[in-house]
Write a protein that binds this DNA or RNA. Structure first.
Length: 814
RNA sequence: GCGAGGGUUGCAGAGUGGUCAAAUGCGCAGGACUUAAGAUCCUGUGGCUUAGUGCCUUCGUAGGUUCGACUCCUACCCCUCGCACCA
């Protein structure tokens, strides 16, 4: 027995793929394919099992398609700007750049240990100024087109850190570093990207037919296109627009609610109510919608009154904790009789409830069904659905209302008051305002010398902040906000097409050759954010004429989550985390890869299972043993049939990314392999195995005296004429016969306390050539004799051969 | 709270209208090999029954549709993901 040390051969083949540039590609006449897994944030703790899983899924598909003759682009890079590097700077006093560079090194080393088929020559990281230069360039293009603009909006703020906090840094309303400090709300003027200009196009899913329904549903609800009306209410002589889908209930409005986080809230508040409103606002901390929904609905009277445009009624305005400042106009009209949330609020603050749609009983709860209007002046008696249009027409004439489409999707707030992100290329000048940095001055590089831990780090480097206004040449100050790191990952798929380009963001010719991504693989947690942002950016770059496709990806594949062995999400606190590197060390990368994709369907969640990896490892060891002993010569008809059938099935399974089912077929094929097979069949088996377990397959392929790489070889083709269904049927009946014999043996042991000594089998003459005495004897553990039913010399004391049928031989146990 | 997905036999998981007591792997049991253990191989693995048969119960819980449901519908319970400054 020649044992193979997995770790040794893995290194050997990884080095060969690298030195032979096996997976490096360039544009060619061959049909192209672009396969991309969402690139990772290189966290300091290294690769986790979920990473190994996604990369393996993409790797298998890449190797498969390459062998089928496609020109496959499969790149990898690092989304390396982000909060963890900055947190490390604060907590561990390392510089984010140093922290990140180390992480990237560590991370890519671990990725290589998995034997992934990347074109590493295209690798980049987003904290490289050569990359984020183009983030800035896109920002300037958006600014030029009015898609980047400034607006005031609320943020979480810790007075002790003197810093804006991420949601993640807020724990139960307190700062992550100062448990005794309440997080406050502060309003800052911040940069937004006008993604809503693309909302309508993003809400069209015809262009992404290859995406899973679940993602399309999530995006649809997230974008939330709704048809309604905008109605103007006057408050202190000023117009306040509100959005509603129910203008039919406008006569039932008994109060208004403005978001407690609304930047103009204090303008409304009367002197008498000021103290109370301030107290109320101070209590609020988070800007998260999730929190808002879970909160008890509370409010406080502002002292202001709005005028209902249909009847000039005076309506009290409340500040509420459940209205979003960013959605619509940050104010809603409340109709307690016909909206449950408004109803509960009205009961709580003893606000009148006015019924305007008949048909319900509004004493205990709101009536939300249809009916005829009442208490609605001239609209009394009309059906409420009908009234929606009529009331809008009426308001439209007075220029106080109009039909409108509203999106739940909000503009993208990209400003971050943090260091480790792309600097926003703007110079603020007292005379000229916010001026774009000229293209020739890009990139605006992050200064290395800054202080962490208090305030916005960029503001601590005065010499960086101070600059000249690009327009008037006077004194200017650089924008110290950096961009949300989601910006970096919104167009990286295009940079991969031409990652070395020093002059342009990318060469459109190259991008148009490779795009769209044919298979994009990622997690469902990105459905509403990244997966929408990347579509938005792609469309924007299309409108600049840089790409000629409407969508970044033809097909999206959403992989499942790997849970801990206890079924829970892997987490340090639960102690159920599995480190892929330890598994590789112990069992080899091939075993890990095989386990990850054979355990469950790649698109469904599954739980880690130590025994499962061992089983994969065991399977590979059996394969090694087999190839040590096998005689390369001629294959039997049975094996030829099996091999070809397996090729046919497995090709389909891989195409459908049902790798788990493919592995089962490969295992079944392996179980039936015989001690002698042809070189071609042996190679076909290895080729099918190679996309899952590339290292071992290369090694065994080499042992078959091949000088070339299995990774460069051709995917086996099906020879339909070799597939023999009759053979397969016979095999099934042999299995059934063995099982029947075992059953009979069991029964006579139990009933008659008799041990069967010898088995006699009577088979039809047509089948007898397939029945092998030694094989069956081996399986049932008793001597076996097989006769044809028409054999005159057979031993058959009970005349059982008479009962034998095709596919069901007679059995006599002596 | 809202939106999306899911709950299958001891475990991990296949299976979306009949061919399902339900693939495959693990675990467990019996047998072969071995001085023995391990590895490997064979067989079995819901219950009862039977010389290879037949019957009963099961796919989160409770109902419903259907000649027939793990698969379709309704309600409820539980789990996972997302909710806009984590990536």
């Amino acid at each position: 027995m020649v044992k193979i040390a997995f770790n040794k051969i893995e290194k050997k083949w990884q080095d060969k793929w690298e030195s032979q540039k096996t997976f490096e590609v360039k544009e060619s006449k061959k049909p192209k394919l672009y396969i991309l897994e969402q690139f990772p944030y290189p966290s300091g703790s290294g690769l986790h099992i979920g990473h190994s899983f996604v990369y393996t899924i993409g790797d298998i598909y890449t190797r498969f398609k390459k062998m089928q003759g496609f020109n496959v682009l499969h790149p990898m890079g690092f989304d390396s700007l982000g909060l963890p590097a900055e947190n490390a700077a604060i907590k561990e006093k390392t510089h984010p750049k140093k922290y990140t560079d180390n992480s990237v090194k560590y991370f890519s080393k671990q990725q290589k240990a998995l034997g992934l088929s990347y074109d590493w020559s295209r690798m980049f990281w987003t904290h490289d100024p050569n990359y984020y230069k183009w983030d800035q360039w896109i920002f300037l293009k958006m600014f030029e087109k009015g898609l980047a603009y400034k607006k005031e909006s609320p943020v979480n703020y810790c007075s002790k850190c003197d810093t804006v906090l991420a949601n993640e840094q807020v724990h139960n309303g307190k700062c992550w570093r100062h448990e005794d400090t309440n997080v406050e709300i502060k309003h800052l003027s911040q940069w937004y990207l006008k993604i809503t200009d693309y909302a309508d196009e993003l809400a069209n899913f015809e262009t992404i037919k290859g995406w899973p329904d679940l993602i399309k549903k999530l995006q649809k609800n997230w974008i939330g296109k709704s048809y309604g009306s905008e109605i103007l209410f006057k408050i202190n002589g000023e117009d306040w627009p509100i959005f509603t889908t129910r203008p039919d209930t406008i006569y039932g409005v008994t109060f208004m609610v403005v978001s407690a986080q609304h930047p103009k809230l204090m303008d409304l508040v009367s002197e008498e109510q000021k103290k109370e409103v301030e107290k109320f606002v101070k209590k609020l901390s988070s800007v998260s919608e999730e929190e808002i929904d879970k909160l008890e609905k509370e409010g406080v009277f502002t002292g202001a009154y709005a005028i209902n445009p249909v009847n000039d009624e005076k309506i009290p305005v409340y500040a509420g904790n459940f209205v979003l400042a960013d959605y619509g106009s940050g104010m809603v009209m409340a109709v307690p009789a016909h909206d449950q949330r408004d109803f509960e609020f009205a009961k709580k603050y003893k606000i009148p409830v006015k019924e305007v749609i008949s048909g319900g009983d509004i004493k205990k709860q709101a009536y939300t069904n249809d009916g005829k209007l009442i208490n609605s002046d001239k609209f009394d008696g009309s059906e409420n659905r009908q009234a929606i249009g009529d009331i809008i027409k009426f308001l439209n004439k007075k220029k106080l209302g109009k039909k409108t489409i509203n999106f739940r999707l909000r503009d993208w707030l990209v400003s971050r008051q943090r260091y480790w992100g792309t600097p926003i290329p703007i110079v603020n000048c007292d005379n000229c305002g916010a001026m774009p940095v000229p293209e020739k001055d890009l990139p605006v590089e992050l200064p290395e010398k800054v202080k962490f831990g208090e305030g916005n780090p960029l503001e601590t480097n005065e010499s960086w902040v101070k600059t000249k206004c690009p327009k008037c040449g006077g004194e200017g100050r650089r924008e110290t906000d950096t961009m949300d790191t989601f910006v970096n990952s919104s167009w990286y798929h295009l940079r991969f097409c031409d990652s070395d380009n020093k002059k342009k963001i990318f060469d459109p010719k190259k991008a148009n050759y490779w795009c769209p991504i044919d298979l994009y693989i990622g997690g469902k947690e990105h459905a509403c954010m990244h997966d929408i942002y990347i579509r938005f950016y792609h469309k924007f770059l299309r409108d600049l004429g840089l790409v000629n496709t409407d969508e970044p990806a033809e097909k999206l594949f959403v992989q499942g989550m790997v849970h801990g062995a206890d079924g829970n999400k892997m987490s340090k606190s639960l102690g159920n985390v599995v480190d892929p590197m330890e598994i590789i060390k112990k069992y080899g990368a091939d075993s890990l890869r095989l386990f990850l994709i054979s355990q469950a369907s790649p698109d469904s969640d599954f739980s880690w299972n130590d025994k499962g990896v061992q089983a994969s490892n065991k399977f590979l060891n059996k394969i090694i043993d087999y190839f040590n002993d096998v005689k390369i010569g001629k294959s039997s008809k049975k094996i030829e049939s099996k091999i070809n059938k397996t090729i046919k099935q497995i090709t389909q399974d891989i195409e459908n990314i049902k790798y788990n089912l493919g592995i089962i077929k490969l295992r079944q094929l392996f179980e039936s392999l015989e001690s002698e097979i042809s070189k071609k069949d042996a190679e076909s088996f290895l080729k099918m195995l190679s996309i899952f377990c590339p290292h071992l397959s290369e090694e065994l392929f080499e042992k078959l005296n091949n000088k070339t790489l299995i990774s460069d070889s051709k995917w086996p083709e099906v020879n339909e004429s070799k597939i023999n269904e009759k053979l397969e049927k016979v095999e099934e009946s042999i299995d059934r016969t063995v099982s029947d014999i075992m059953n009979i043996l069991k029964i006579i042991k139990e009933k008659q306390n008799k041990d069967g000594k010898k088995i006699f089998i009577y088979v039809t003459p047509m089948e007898i050539e397939f029945y092998d005495e030694k094989d069956i004897s081996n399986r049932v553990g008793k001597p076996v004799e097989i006769f044809a039913v028409n054999d005159k010399s057979k031993y058959d004391p009970e005349n059982i051969s008479k009962k034998a049928k095709f596919g069901k031989p007679g059995i006599f146990v002596a």
